[in-house]
Simulated assay, not measured.
Amino acid sequence: MNETVTEDEHVTLINAFIVPVGKEAEAVKFWDKAADFMRGQPGYVSTALHQSILPDAKYMLINVAQWESVDAFKAASKALGTESGIKPLEGLVPNPSLYKVIRAD
């Protein structure tokens, strides 16, 4: 499998969140703050938050975001943790990973 990403390829962040029961609204507010910060970072392209339609889903929220490059995402992610001042939500478990498109319709 080819693990490289060319300079002109955007990367996709897929971040599936385990959300504590009863903290769904707080988790969305947390995401809103983080997304607002990330929108101002170099290399940001877009983001969309998805909510499960099944109440017992393991991952209640899934963020899908586009970044211009792996390095841009890494720098923005680091800045989120060190410069944003946004406090983590207790019990919210993110599971982020970067992907590239290998097939599209």
Rank of each mutant, 00 (worst) to 15 (best):
L92G: 06
L61F: 15
E68Y: 04
P96R: 08
A16K: 13
M1T: 07
T6V: 02
P88L: 12
K23R: 09
L98I: 09
Q51E: 10
L54D: 14
F17L: 15
I102Q: 08
K78S: 11
K33D: 10
M38N: 04
V21A: 14
P42D: 12
S77G: 12
F30W: 15
K87V: 15
V21R: 13
P96M: 11
F37V: 00
V101H: 00
D105S: 03
A35D: 10
S84A: 15
N63H: 01
I102T: 13
W31G: 02
L92I: 08
F73M: 11
A48H: 13
K87C: 06
K29T: 11
R103S: 08
P96F: 10
A104G: 09
V93P: 00
A34K: 08
I62R: 09
A48N: 12
D56S: 08
I18W: 00
V11C: 10
R103V: 12
A76H: 06
T47Y: 01
A104F: 02
V21G: 00
V45P: 01
G22D: 05
A25T: 14
A34Y: 09
H50D: 06
V101R: 05
N95E: 00
K87M: 02
E3I: 08
S97Q: 09
Y59D: 04
K33P: 00
V93Y: 01
A34D: 06
M1E: 10
E83I: 00
V45H: 01
I86S: 11
S52A: 14
T82N: 13
L92Q: 07
I53N: 13
I86P: 02
F17P: 07
A76C: 09
G43Q: 00
A35M: 01
D32W: 07
W67R: 01
L54R: 15
G43A: 06
F30D: 07
P94D: 07
A25H: 11
E24G: 02
E3G: 03
E26W: 01
L61K: 05
E68W: 05
K23P: 03
G81I: 11
E83Q: 11
E83S: 15
I102F: 15
W67C: 10
L89R: 13
M60C: 00
H50W: 11
E83A: 10
I53V: 15
N15Q: 11
W31Q: 12
E26M: 08
S84M: 14
K100R: 14
